[in-house]
């Protein structure tokens, strides 16, 4: 369990090092490997979020698919907000509503909340166990089930397959 956590931190740190240096000389790589190894050993027992990651073919596939769904949603809703901003009468109908999530893991909830925040028109204000409080620029419905179906479900049904 702990080895996987350390390995995840090590890989993330090493890839950041490689991207930052942008060169593949052997000395640079050796320094990067040593540094990321030491840091991941030190921090391994404290950062426990990566324990929930699963390295399998299915999860990688769904992660990539999720990225595409997310980017499409991002562009679509950005255009929607751009339309609202450019309309002279400013057609907004804001409010804070409740939605529910079925995700249990911390990582899954974090990704879900961040995705909801990044799609314009919705903004996660607070999380309380499995209740998400979302500020909408255009409130569709105050009922918790309908709101969940409208906002959360499209991300959740993919995230459930990755994080269970």
């Amino acid at each position: 369990m702990k080895v996987k956590n350390i390995a995840a931190i090590f890989l993330i740190l090493l890839s950041i090092w490689i991207l930052l240096n942008n060169q593949f000389q052997i000395e640079v790589m050796i320094i990067g490997v040593i540094l990321s190894f030491v840091i991941s050993i030190i921090m391994g027992s404290r950062i426990t979020v990566f324990n929930e990651l699963k390295f399998s073919f299915k999860s990688v596939f769904y992660t990539i698919w999720y990225l595409f769904v997310f980017l499409a949603e991002l562009v679509k809703s950005n255009l929607d907000v751009a339309r609202r901003v450019l309309t002279p009468s400013l057609p907004i109908n804001p409010g804070i509503i409740k939605t529910k999530t079925v995700l249990k893991s911390k990582m899954g909830r974090m990704i879900l909340a961040n995705s909801i925040t990044l799609t314009p028109g919705t903004l996660t204000v607070d999380i309380e166990d499995d209740i998400l409080y979302i500020h909408c620029i255009d409130v569709c419905c105050e009922d918790i089930d309908k709101a969940t179906a409208a906002i959360v479900d499209k991300f959740e049904k993919i995230l459930v397959k990755i994080y269970g």
Binding site: G95, I96, N114, T117, L118, L123, Y133, H135
Partner: peptide, 28 residues
Amino acid sequence: NPVSSHVLARAAHYIKIPLTDKTVADLL
């Protein structure tokens, strides 16, 4: 970026920054 906007919105709601008059619902 989503993290910072979320933290900002939460802090603002906590210190009771008023919502606009057009607001229909505030369930928090």
